[in-house]
Simulated assay, not measured.
Amino acid sequence: MSDIEIGRLGYLGLLLTALVLWMFVQHRGRLVQKLQQLAAWGLIFLAVIAAIGLWDDIRHTVAPQQSVFADQGRIELPRAPDGHYYMTLLINGTPVNFVVDTGATGMVLTRQDAERVGITPDDLAFHASARTANGAVETAPVRLDRVALGAIEDRNLPAFVNGGEMDNSLLGMSYLQRFDRLEISGGKMVLERR
């Protein structure tokens, strides 16, 4: 647990103690009833703490993630609540989350994702440009040594690093066309490669 999380728990504990003391001072005559209510609130408090601690596990159950069927060369991506499809690729061994964008030509990394996979954006020449919905942005061409999706692996792939602000890296057609089949049906994007 980090210092911030310990501080938050300490604050919540202090707040809970203050509420309990206030309750006893206000209702001294009905002690048994108040102890029952205190126990109920204590259980609610513990349930909330447990839900926060287990949120990552709960989130993966409630919001399914991509499924890779390596033996079939098949990937299934569920549509996210925002209507987009997201794919996680291992680039040089580092997981990078992409928004799948069939309207984009290339694979475009944010500056932050580029740094995470071992590319230093400050050393790049941002001399290329791309047209986006938000206007033209400067980009720098790069080569990705290794891009893996389960057992499917590609080497020396061309990509770009975005010189501007971008929320997510984009996975465009230069990568998607490596698959033999791309289908969107029933809230899923299915990609197959033989």
Rank of each mutant, 00 (worst) to 15 (best):
M1R: 02
I4R: 11
E5Q: 10
R8M: 15
L9R: 15
G10E: 15
L14I: 07
L19I: 06
L19Q: 06
V20N: 01
V25R: 15
Q26S: 14
H27G: 00
H27D: 13
G29Y: 10
V32P: 14
Q33H: 13
K34I: 08
Q36M: 02
G42T: 14
G42S: 10
L46V: 05
L46N: 10
I49E: 15
I49T: 09
A51F: 13
G53Q: 14
L54A: 15
D57E: 14
R59D: 05
T61S: 08
T61K: 01
P64Q: 06
Q65W: 09
Q65F: 04
Q66L: 05
Q66H: 09
S67M: 07
F69N: 12
D71T: 04
D71Q: 00
G73N: 06
R74Q: 11
I75N: 00
E76L: 09
E76I: 05
A80L: 05
A80K: 02
G83Y: 06
Y86L: 01
M87I: 06
T94Y: 02
N97F: 12
F98C: 00
G103Q: 08
A104N: 10
L109T: 15
A114I: 08
G118T: 03
T120N: 13
D122H: 07
D123K: 07
F126K: 05
H127Q: 13
A128L: 11
A128F: 12
R131P: 11
A133G: 09
V137Y: 09
P141R: 11
V142K: 02
A148R: 03
L157Y: 04
L157N: 02
G164V: 00
G164N: 03
M166K: 08
S169F: 08
L170H: 09
M173Y: 06
F179P: 09
S185P: 07
G187L: 06
